[in-house]
Computed example of a mutant assay.
Amino acid sequence: MKRLCTIAALFTIALLPIAGHAAEVQVAVASNFTKPMQAIAKRFEQDTGHKAVLAFGATGKFYAQIHNGAPFGVLLAADEAVPAKLESEGLGVAGSRFPYAIGTLVLWSARSDYIDDQTTLTRQPYRHLSIANPKTAPYGAAAMATLEKLGLTESTRGRLVQGENIAQAHQFVASGNAELGFVALSQVVDKGVIGEGSGWIVPASFHPPIRQDALLLNKGRDNPAAQALLEYLKSAKAAEVIEAYGYSLE
């Protein structure tokens, strides 16, 4: 019995350093990256013991919250401009910024067999075309660039409905309030293909690249979980998830 107690005590002591090194980081995540980040966070905790507490929303709103002292240690933005701005303003750790994903835009409808290709925008009757706010959302800006490329800026202007972010733009279409809309492929992909509904994947040449950058924020500078998460995002395990949701990597 004494020997068993000694072994149990040694086993407990051996576990203490592991528990002591586990940490938690609050992460601001762009709405388009919701599904892949939920999967990555689960793997990250299983593999490292660290925990990523996720908040999802518009990158522009996160920028304001970070300026107002929000406790985020890491930002996973929907663009490269906001992380670069935060870094230049001294709110992010210099040299920590890197692209974690290149987004893919898709014209999507919740109706099956509704969208074949870009001709849907001139061939199918519709009242509402959903996009994210192009002034604050990179996917919205990419949608407007696509419409311009197709010569449809003026003809679609009266039918556009704008979501505050890409999550709301997707919800307008999913709920039937808009017949179709430009959303992130990650929102509608299932096992590498578009799941429910129908869609047309917009060629990357139709709009500027949707480069999404990660940034270590000042509040995460000394947080081992924040640093570990950024390294994990560069790993093969994370890349597998990211690409499965329709993103490309640099």
Rank of each mutant, 00 (worst) to 15 (best):
A226D: 04
I166Q: 11
S198E: 05
D113T: 12
N223F: 08
A81Y: 09
T48D: 03
A78C: 05
I242N: 04
V93P: 00
D47W: 02
F172T: 06
F206Q: 10
Q171S: 09
L107N: 02
M37N: 11
G197L: 08
F62S: 06
G199E: 05
G60H: 04
A110K: 14
S248F: 07
F56T: 06
L129N: 05
G151E: 03
S109Q: 09
D47K: 05
V188K: 04
I201N: 06
G181K: 03
T6L: 15
G176L: 13
R3C: 01
I18R: 07
F72W: 14
G90C: 10
G181E: 10
N32R: 04
K237G: 01
E154Q: 15
P71Y: 11
V173W: 11
F44A: 00
Q162K: 15
L10T: 02
L230D: 13
L91N: 03
S109Y: 02
S96A: 09
A132F: 00
A8K: 00
C5W: 14
I210Q: 02
W108S: 06
F56L: 11
L86N: 03
A244E: 13
M37I: 14
I40R: 06
V188D: 05
I40Q: 01
H170R: 15
A78K: 12
Q162R: 15
S130R: 04
S235Q: 04
V189K: 05
G197I: 06
G151Q: 07
P17E: 06
E80Q: 14
D222R: 12
V183F: 06
I66D: 05
A184Q: 05
L107R: 00
A142M: 13
A184V: 14
Q118P: 05
G151Y: 09
F44H: 00
E89V: 08
T153C: 04
A141N: 00
P134G: 12
A145Q: 07
G92K: 07
Y139A: 11
H67T: 01
W108L: 00
A236S: 12
L121A: 02
W200S: 03
I66M: 03
E179N: 05
F44G: 03
E164T: 15
V188I: 14
E179I: 11
L76R: 10
